[in-house]
């Protein structure tokens, strides 16, 4: 345990002790997980990950804890562990505390799996997860003209369905499914009819790859 983690625990313990003077309160898995998300938002993925670990240690059925582990492992470059935690989270029931909070853990897990499978070069699996998320969120037919998509990652709002669509475009390209890749690219473009490369040619595939790269930074 690092010194930073230790100090945080001490701080929580002191506060709990002080709270305990008035009322005996113990941090729940929800508290730990939520704190993990706070650290996640600050980019402290390492400590965030540990709080998520504490959360699932506290409650091994706490879905959002595994969800957080999946995302933080991914951020830390431990993509296999991330996938494993996403897979652990997926069958679990959503925590009641998060209902109505705007945090849809299941969707986040599916989105995390799509991202993680893409990062892990498991593009077929990434496509399954990504397609699934878009269907669940109603963003499967998303187009730029519709404005913001239905789904965004409530823990990191810079991530939304457009990034999932981009992942699908990327994974389809890697899979050699250039027509499907182009279809997903079109969803991310404001003027898709003007972009119609013949992906059966190298030149067309070049344009498609170029567009995928461009869209990655312009979602």
């Amino acid at each position: 345990m690092t010194f930073k983690r230790l100090s945080i625990l001490i701080a929580i313990a002191i506060s709990l002790i002080s709270w305990n003077c008035r009322k005996q309160l113990e941090p729940t898995e929800v508290d730990m997980s939520e704190y993990g998300w706070v650290l996640y938002a600050n980019g402290d993925f390492l400590n965030s990950n540990e709080w998520f670990q504490e959360a699932v240690f506290t409650d091994s059925t706490y879905k959002d804890g595994f969800n957080g582990l999946g995302w933080t492992h991914g951020k830390l470059g431990q993509i296999q562990q991330g996938i494993a935690n996403f897979n652990l989270a997926l069958p679990l029931e959503d925590d009641a505390n998060l209902l109505g909070s705007g945090h849809n853990t299941t969707q986040q897990v599916i989105a995390g799996l799509a991202m993680a499978k893409h990062a892990d070069n498991q593009h077929a699996q990434a496509i399954i997860s990504g397609d699934s998320l878009l269907v669940v969120t109603g963003d499967d037919d998303y187009s730029v003209s519709l404005g913001d998509p239905n789904w965004f990652f409530s823990r990191d709002t810079k991530i939304n369905s457009k990034h999932i669509i981009w992942v699908l475009a990327s994974s389809h390209f890697v899979q050699g499914n250039f027509d499907k890749s182009l279809s997903r690219v079109h969803q991310l473009m404001s003027d898709p009819p003007t972009f119609a490369p013949d992906v059966n040619t190298v030149e067309g595939r070049l344009l498609l790859a170029e567009k995928i790269e461009f869209l990655r930074d312009n979602l």
Binding site: W71, M115, A116, I159, L219
Partner: peptide
């Protein structure tokens, strides 16, 4: 050569 950086896990 084109690069597609994973939107979430950016080292990939």
């Amino acid at each position: 050569l084109f690069i597609g950086q994973n939107p979430a896990f950016t080292r990939y």
